[in-house]
Design a protein around this nucleic acid. Structure first.
Lengths: 137, 137
DNA sequence: GTGCAGGTTGAAGCGCACTTCAAGTCAAGG
DNA sequence: CCTTGACTTGAAGTGCGCTTCAACCTGCAC
């Protein structure tokens, strides 16, 4: 029994990659994965294509959108200028995301610990939004 | 000339709040803002309604979805049990978001500083995704 | 009156990442 | 042979937060 574990059905690969089969078909449709080999109409994946999927998933994990991942894949797995540029932009974006979430968290924690039971009487809270409404003068 | 600055047209309020007029109409449609007073068919906003909008925007700034904001508004501006519960859930969510972005950032920074020029030869990178594909055994 | 900026409506569209559905195919097991 | 389960397809739907569009109306300046 040669190559017993080599090729996977879509359901198997999806399960191992932690996605739904529909997602894999979707990736193929939008050109993120190359058209899979078929046996009797059904997709079956080689270890190489499984690895390609893993790369896609890892990029997703790193915060890239599918559109960006397409570019990354086109840039190859070698770290070239475009790869580096994309990564640096993404890091900046992640920093912004972190800062934004932190600001939001700080605001909420302030309110939870604030001595003012009514939000609208809390000076910090008022200051935070009054600024917006009076800026138009 | 009494109440000269009291009531704002939708464009003015939107500008001051930093949104588009279409967003305000949208908020009204989905019940986030009460139907505005009309003068000759046109909306005009009192300071009170402007304040309500500011609160909505501030909640958005704090990371709440519009659906959640509807609940918050229903809970009133006094910090009650439901308000506190929503805020605590959101803080947990923000923590998760921060951690996720940080993980992503760490990964990218590793790759940028990694001595392996080809991603697929970087052991950390491989480990990160190989784990996913072999977990199904 | 004429033009213009800015308002009104309902319906449809967008971007993202998929999911869901209906209708059909295929291989293996009893 | 027939069922079962996993697969196939294209098209449409989902959730979020709006935006855009077409067609129309309003108030003000000139």
């Amino acid at each position: 029994m040669p190559d017993n574990d080599a090729r996977l059905a879509i359901g198997e690969l999806a399960r191992r990659a932690g996605t739904a089969p529909s997602a894999l078909r979707y990736y193929e449709r939008i050109g993120l994965l190359p058209p899979a080999d078929r046996a009797g109409g059904k997709r079956h994946y080689s270890p190489a294509s499984a690895e390609r999927l893993a790369l896609v998933r890892l990029y997703q994990y790193a915060g890239f959108t599918l559109k960006e991942i397409r570019k990354l894949l086109a840039a190859g797995s070698r770290r070239g200028a475009s790869w580096t540029s994309l990564a640096e932009h993404k890091i900046a974006e992640l920093d912004a995301r972190i800062a934004e979430a932190q600001r939001a968290k700080d605001l909420l924690e302030h309110v939870l610990n604030c001595p003012h039971h009514d939000l609208l009487t809390c000076p910090n809270f008022r200051a935070a939004f009054q600024a917006r409404l009076e800026a138009g003068s």
